[in-house]
Design a protein around this nucleic acid. Structure first.
Lengths: 187, 187
DNA sequence: GTCGCCCTGTCGAACGTTAGATAGGGCTTG
DNA sequence: CAAGCCCTATCTAACGTTCGACAGGGCGAC
């Protein structure tokens, strides 16, 4: 039961932040959901800014390994790219949650610098992966793969945001299908 | 000077909400920027939920007339569509502000119902306009124009969100260019 | 072995600040 | 005078944060 609290705090804070943002994350609700008291959180995370940064860092670390697993376990790069939007879909499936990076991007002006840095890294990780897979699939050249990767990332994030605002996962699916029909994503 | 306060409150609240969201909008800062006292706002808006709804409603009303003007003053529908992303670009230009609808979509779970309804209408207004112009331009058929319009709206909103998180307007421009290159937007 | 010490994890209680909201009074305009 | 508008003053609730304390385990000194 010792170090489990720290992991439980991280996981729960991530869930809350995906639904309510950094500003909507508060120590009392977080502590309640973890099953400890608010003051106890300070033993593991000395400030909200540090907690937010730790949550965001863990978020992109998890995403990074998830993306690598996806690439390794998929037959070819094109199939991996086809599966990519499902990562965002899964957030919607479980409690209408948003990509942490999207929410925190909106909150950009009110975020501590250490949090902003981790949010930026999340986008970097995604873009680097998409870019790499695009090149491997022969769907983009080296000099324009980054631009295409950014477009894919922004479009998928926008689709998730819109689907969430309508509480309609099928809207996310049709948006992705339209992107595919237009050639922004591989069909 | 009578009704000017109400308009000033609306305009200032809109600016604040575009930068900090509904949750980041508070009566004291709003009153300070308007040049009155916080309690005075209650004379015009009896609750924060009502204020938020009024701001969002005014936002889509302004956008609706702006879109009609754009369509009327542009030579052809295709040109109007090409100009469409510039509406989102202008928000970025003035103080890195986000589309109010995007910010409030992220905050969806914490929004009063009356605010959510207005946010939804903003998206509806945009999609209806894009859909109409797509058909007029012959760029989409009647039965799939709505899907394409939704994809355009979501992608442009995503581009704005991403550009803002990097504080880089040129990133927005290159994202739009990539959308155009892919045929999601008319080139 | 056991005593004393420190470290870890958690807690209750309170801090100062700020949130939205209210009551009541005083201008100004017609 | 009455209505519209804005004020001062205040409230309750919630925020992040701090503090002192307590339980339990590990560990070296005696």
């Amino acid at each position: 039961m010792t170090t489990n609290s720290k992991e439980a705090i991280l996981a729960t804070a991530r869930r809350i932040a995906q639904a309510h943002g950094y500003g909507g994350l508060n120590y009392r609700d977080l502590a309640d959901q973890v099953g400890i008291k608010a003051a106890s959180i300070y033993h593991h995370f000395p400030s909200k800014a540090g907690l937010g940064a730790a949550v965001a860092r863990r978020y992109w670390e998890d995403t990074e390994s998830e993306l690598e697993t996806l690439l390794n376990e998929t037959a070819d790069p094109i199939s991996a790219l086809r599966e990519y939007p499902k990562i965002f879909r899964r957030s919607l499936e479980s409690e209408h949650r948003l990509c942490l990076c999207s929410f925190m991007s909106a909150e950009h002006d009110d975020l501590p610098d250490e949090v902003t840095a981790e949010v930026r890294t999340f986008a970097d990780v995604n873009i680097a992966w998409i870019s790499k897979v695009l090149v491997a699939a022969g769907a983009a050249s080296l000099d324009n793969s980054a631009a295409q990767a950014r477009a894919i990332f922004a479009a998928v994030a926008g689709a998730q945001l819109m689907a969430r605002s309508r509480s309609d996962i099928s809207l996310f699916d049709t948006l992705i299908e339209t992107y595919q029909a237009k050639g922004l994503l591989p069909a």
